[in-house]
Design a binder for these strands. Structure first.
Lengths: 264, 264
DNA sequence: CAACGTCATTCGGTCTTCTGAACGGTTAAT
DNA sequence: ATTAACCGTTCAGAAGACCGAATGACGTTG
């Protein structure tokens, strides 16, 4: 008894338990397709059913989660809609990026993304879909490990090797056979990206997709980057360089817009 | 002492306090522009600063809220992005509506919305912007009182008068000089909308904007509707009828898609 | 320069939530 | 029909969050 209490007292309770659990529920329902039962969620979160039950009732009363007609499966509720779009509206980069992304998507004809580095992950802030039938899957708000994406490598290449070693989670997670997991190989790619000004991903997070990305100059909050993705069949090396020029130009023009905004 | 405890015991604690507060924080930061200090939020929510402090620390650690460099103003964090888009992805209506809205926006050249009834409010699920320079402001996730929007009236017109009287909050809130707040006038408009198949809003939530809406046949979850909005200068009565035909057609084709999905 | 206003933050006693086991309901398989 | 395996839900003891006042750190104003 004593030892457990002492251990718990040792580290300050920096977290409010039920607050953290509310957030975990939202992350879980957001990540998985949704449609989870209370017992499934309790299992996934390693939380007693009875505790989660009270929390879900609170969330349901406020319409942050919905309950199936059957009363047994939870999904995100209508109130959850508000937060995502509100984040984007309040963000300078995301709200200025719209026209720039439109133009880049128009020029290249391929899928275009704006991403932000968050810890070891890249988060998609905005996208424009390719007009081709064959295109990559992605969604605003979704995360991928930074080391396996062009966006992530473009942003990581702004830091020096020591900093990169500290920021990433070693060993690196493997998503496809082509994911770069060797530290030296990754640092080599980052150095190369720094020199030439753009980064590339060659089937490292989804097979058959190649992607080219350029970081925005503004080091604001860890960094943002713009990318352009296409199936390998439409992105050979020559085409990649061509696309890289267009992406660089887009990143530069967005960077200029942001600087102008910063000076009022 | 006893009386307070007894009163508290009388009603079951249906809500987990800190869970509810987390949600309130998200709603507050989502609704206001954001950038609120701890003291401001504590004031707005009628919660002690010290209690809110612990909750905000939890939310910040998990990146659901961000703290200014100055360390004194909170805004929504990156994790908040996930929920909104995930809700839309998991929703059959919203995910099927894309092409239908595209076509309607193309055909009319005006702003087009998909909305859902939630209590007394309409929530925007998706939008397509007008190609005209002069256009209405709106955002996915935002709410407006149902009685002051074409979308809301289209959905309310599916219920009978008694049900409508129960569902709305009386007296009706006034948003503009033209907002209909008289019960009989509103019920009259709903009856008219039911007969002709579409509802109209004439500057009732934003001055100078007219809007035409049609409910989807599927009574699924309170109801959804599609609308088309334009400044009065581009939407006289004749044009409104023309637009109503196009919106009706779009609503019908989306309804058909949904029925097909329902039958597998 | 000092006094003030505002801000986030800490601290211990009290009250709430959390918890694990038991309950009643529904569906599926035997 | 009976069993079994889920589901959500309840309850009283135990653990932890909540609260108000006091503190420290700013930046601003007189």
């Amino acid at each position: 008894m004593e030892s457990v209490a002492a251990a718990a007292r040792g580290r300050r309770p920096e977290e409010v338990k039920s607050a953290a659990r509310v957030l975990e529920v939202l992350e879980l329902l957001g990540a998985e397709g949704a449609r989870l039962s209370l017992a499934e969620m309790a299992g996934a979160m390693a939380v007693p059913k009875s505790s989660l039950h009270a929390i879900l009732r609170t969330m349901e009363a406020r319409r942050w989660v919905d309950l199936d007609p059957s009363g047994t499966r939870y999904s995100l509720g209508l109130k959850a809609l508000l937060t995502g779009t509100a984040y984007l509206e309040g963000d300078d980069v995301a709200s200025l990026a719209g026209p720039v992304l439109d133009a880049l998507a128009e020029e290249t004809g391929e899928s275009v993304h704006l991403g932000r580095l968050d810890g070891t992950d890249v988060v998609y802030l905005a996208k424009r879909e390719s007009r081709h039938a064959l295109r990559m899957y992605s969604a605003v708000g979704r995360r991928l490990p930074a080391h396996a994406t062009a966006l992530g490598k473009a942003m990581l290449s702004q830091y020096d090797a020591a900093e990169v070693r500290m920021r990433l989670n070693w060993p690196l997670e493997r998503l496809t056979p082509d994911t770069v997991t060797d530290p030296e190989a990754l640092l080599g790619q980052l150095a190369e990206a720094r020199l030439r000004g753009w980064a590339m991903d060659d089937g490292e997070n989804s097979p058959d997709i190649r992607c080219v990305a350029v970081a925005l100059g503004t080091g604001q909050g860890g960094g943002d980057a713009i990318s352009c993705s296409a199936p390998k069949s439409r992105m050979d090396d020559a085409r990649a360089e061509e696309v890289a020029r267009a992406v660089t130009e887009a990143a530069h023009s967005l960077g200029t817009l942001l600087k102008r905004l910063g000076q009022h």
